Amino acid sequence: MEIFDRYQSASSINQQIAVKKAELAAIDKKEEQKSTFEKTDTVNIGDKNYDENDYQRVLEKFKRVDSQTRAHEQQHASLGDTKGAISYNYQTGPDGKLYVTGGHVRLDTSLPQDEDAALAKLEKLSKSAGAPSELSSADASIARAANLNKMLILSRQEEQGVNDANNKQQ
C-alpha cells in the first residue's frame, strides 16, 4: 500500500510540474505577442511645430530603452540555460537608426528526472528569471513557478525521508 502511495505522490508532483510548464509556455507566448505591439514616442519631423528639444528628448529615450533592454535580456541569458539567442524588437528612431525597444530570451525550463539535478536547474532558472531589477510579468511568473517546483520536490524528498525512517523503525 505504501509503495502505491509513493507512486501516486510522484505522479501527482509530475502532473503539477507539467501544468506549470504549460503555464510558462502560455506566458512566453503572451509576452512575445505583447512586445510585438509595444509603442514608443516618435517625432514627426515634417511637423511645423518640430522642436529640437523634442527631437533630443525622444532620441535620448530611444537610446535609454535600447541600453536598458539589452542589459536586461543579457542578464537573463548569462545566468540561465537558454534555448537560442536573445530576440530583440527594433524600432526606427528619429535619427533613422534602429533601436531595441523590447526583447526576450527563451530559458530552458525542461527538468531532468533526477530530483537533485532538477533542484539545481530550478535554482538556476529562478536566479536567471529574477536577475534584472525591473522584472516583466513573464520574468516574475517564471521565477515564481521555479520556486514552487523547488518546494514541491523538496516536500516530496522530505516525505520520502519520513517514510524511509518509519520503514526502518518497523
Rank of each mutant, 00 (worst) to 15 (best):
F4S: 12
Y7D: 08
Q8W: 09
Q8E: 13
S9C: 11
A10W: 13
S11E: 08
S11P: 01
S12V: 09
I13C: 10
Q15N: 12
Q15R: 13
A18C: 01
A22S: 15
E23Y: 02
L24N: 10
L24C: 05
I27G: 11
D28C: 07
K30L: 13
Q33M: 13
K34H: 14
K34V: 10
F37A: 12
D41L: 08
T42S: 14
V43G: 04
V43Y: 13
N44E: 13
I45K: 15
D47W: 12
K48C: 04
N49K: 08
Y55H: 13
Q56V: 14
R57L: 15
R57K: 15
L59F: 13
E73W: 06
Q74W: 06
A77V: 08
L79G: 03
D81E: 12
T82Y: 08
A85L: 08
I86Y: 05
I86M: 09
S87M: 06
Y88N: 11
Y88F: 15
T92N: 04
L98R: 14
Y99G: 03
Y99C: 03
V100W: 05
R106K: 10
D108K: 06
P112N: 07
E115A: 10
A117P: 00
A118R: 04
L119I: 10
L119T: 02
K121E: 10
S126K: 12
K127F: 02
K127Q: 11
A129V: 02
G130H: 01
E134N: 06
D139Y: 00
D139P: 00
S141F: 03
I142T: 10
I142M: 07
A145M: 03
A146I: 02
A146Q: 01
N149W: 00
L154I: 10
S155G: 00
E158G: 00
E159P: 00
E159L: 07
Q160M: 08
V162G: 02
A165Q: 12
N167T: 04
N167F: 07
K168T: 12
Q170D: 14
